[in-house]
Structure formats: C-alpha cells, structure tokens
Simulated scan of single mutants.
Amino acid sequence: MARVTEPTRYGDGVAVVVVTYFPGDDLARFLDTLEKASTRDVRVVLADNDSTDDEALDRAAERENVHLLRIGENLGYGGGANRGVAELDDSYGWVVVANPDLEWEPGSLDVLLDAARRWPRGGAFGPLIREPDGTVYPSARLLPSLGRGIGHAVFAKVWPANPWTRAYRQERAPEERVSGWLSGSCQLFRREAFDSVRGFDSRYFMYFEDVDLGDRIGRAGWQNVYVPSAAVTHIGGKATSRAPKKMLAAHHESAYRYLADRHRGPAWKPVLAAIKLGLAARLKLETRGR
C-alpha cells in the first residue's frame, strides 16, 4: 500500500480539467456555474479531443484562467483527462476532472475541498449527481465483482430491482462514505493519489475508465469518498449521442477489458470466453434497429 502520510511535493492550487468533444453551449454553462462553485482562484484546462466547433471553444478560452489544449486526436475520456492533468505544474495539488455538460451548485467545489481535509487518505472525491429532472444518479458504487457484474448486466434492463443491481448501485440515503468507485463525470482528485497510479488507463476509450481508476486508487492505499453535501447536475449523453452504436460497443468492450484484467490465467479463459459471447449477444440485442 502507498504511504499516504508522507509529505507531498504538490502545492495547494486547484485546477479543473474539462474533457471536451463537441461541447457546444454546455461548456459556457459549465464555466458560468463553476465561477460560483468556489471562492478560490481555479485554473481551467480544456482538454479537447479534436472537436471542430471552434467557436464555442475559442470563446471559452478567452475567459480568465482558461487554457485550451487542442490534443489533435480523440484519445477518449481517460486519455484526454491525462493529457489535461499533464499540463499542470506541481503547484496544483487538487485537480477536478469533469464532463462539460455539468452545472455546479454554488459553493459545491469548496464543499468537496473541505471534505478532502476531513479524509487525509482520500484520493478521489465525488459529489452527489442529479439528473436534469432532479433525481439522484447512483454515482458512488461497489466495484463490480464477477458475480455481481454478470447479475447486473443480465437483469438490470428487465428486472431493475434485482439484488445484484441494488447491491452494485448502492442506492440508499446519501451519506458521506468510502465507495468502491465514483462516477467519472465529476471527481476531485488529490494530485498525489492521481499521479501515484498514473491517472486513467488510456486503454479504456470510453466507459469503465472510472471503475478501473477507483479500483487502482483503492489498491494503492487511498480512498474513494462520496460527498453528497456537494452537488452538480449532469445533463449527460451529448457526446455519446453522436454515435450511439459505437458508444454501446465501446461500453461492452470496456466491460470485458475490466473483467479480463482482473481474472488472468488459464483457469479463467473458459469463463472469460463465455462472458465475451454473452456481451456480444447483449450488444446485438441493444443495437437492433438503431
């Protein structure tokens, strides 16, 4: 385990890395609400995955403390986030990685930072995430074990209240607690923890990059902390709606990669082969008619 009590080389600066891909008007709303989310000076890096709506990005880059990083290719969410964090010097010890289709509640970033001081072993901190209709999204979940993951994948659509899904999603009264992983749509990272596990695994183009990172942060001796006293609203689905079939395929590929990474060796090959066939069948059903 990591020795998390050692002095850090990082300063106390706060930065926000926004991974963009055709963000449109969402980006301006994100930046407008971010201004009221903290009383601190916050540096913003727009890590752009080869968008072509330059007007929205150029307008955003005209704002104070906003830097536009044109990556020049689509690295996916985790890869783009890593490039954005790499732009920051060591004075930034706190880094938010977020989607642009978020609205921050006033003071919410400061609430996350206050929670980080209460949890010295906390490596990642996630707010309560609301859907546009006000319902709470289950953004702090258990890690998907093989049995729980299969049960959730098979029954979630046809039997939403099944025990595997209920256990996995951890839908209960909001409380500040340690979780297995946190939604990648908005997380505050202790820079020392993020860098200690080398950030996101860029092999995950979309989906499960947050699950994988939460697992590795926990294995390294840090904690993933859910902070429901801080809240954001996630509009969701803008980037993925551009190519829904491609995104569904990426989801299933990432699900298999996550399980295969954690179940290695000859004994697991028949199980993984069956999982791959099951995921392929599920993808075919979900994309039929799209």
Rank of each mutant, 00 (worst) to 15 (best):
E73P: 00
T135S: 14
G123M: 00
Y207W: 12
L75V: 02
Y10T: 03
A173S: 04
G93K: 15
D32S: 03
V227E: 13
I150W: 14
E171S: 11
S185N: 07
T8S: 14
A230G: 07
A140K: 00
V111R: 06
L69K: 00
P270W: 12
D212P: 05
G278R: 10
P100L: 01
E286D: 01
L248D: 04
G218M: 03
G79N: 05
T39Q: 12
I71E: 02
R282Q: 12
Y204E: 00
L143R: 12
K245P: 01
R216M: 08
Y258G: 02
E105L: 00
Y10R: 02
K246R: 14
W104A: 07
Q223V: 05
A249D: 07
M247G: 02
V44F: 14
S91G: 14
A15E: 02
A220Q: 10
A98Y: 03
L248C: 01
P100K: 12
G149D: 10
P7H: 05
P174F: 12
G80Q: 11
G278L: 09
A115M: 13
A81K: 14
W119T: 11
K238N: 10
L142Q: 05
A115L: 10
H263N: 13
E209T: 09
H234E: 05
A15L: 04
V14R: 14
G221T: 09
D58R: 11
M1N: 09
A60T: 11
G84Q: 05
R242A: 11
L75A: 03
D90I: 06
Y92T: 15
G84I: 06
Y168K: 04
R290Q: 13
N224F: 04
L88A: 13
G126V: 00
L57V: 07
E176S: 09
L188S: 08
P120M: 08
R169W: 05
A273C: 08
E105M: 07
M1W: 11
F22W: 15
E64V: 06
R257N: 01
G199R: 01
E175D: 14
A81P: 01
R288C: 03
L57G: 03
Y168T: 08
V45C: 06
R63S: 01
P244L: 08
I129E: 02
R118C: 00
F125N: 03
A281I: 07
H67Y: 15
A231D: 14
A156P: 10
A153L: 12
L128N: 10
R3C: 10
A15P: 02
L272P: 08
T39M: 09
Y207D: 09
S254G: 10
F208G: 04
G107M: 00
A173G: 08
L277N: 03
L68E: 05
D48I: 09
E209V: 02
L31F: 07
I150E: 00
Y137V: 08
R148W: 06
V154L: 07
G199P: 00
A28H: 14
F155S: 00
E64R: 15
S185Q: 13
V111N: 03
G93Q: 07
H234I: 13
S139N: 12
P228T: 15
D58Q: 07
D195M: 07
L277S: 06
E103H: 10
L213S: 14
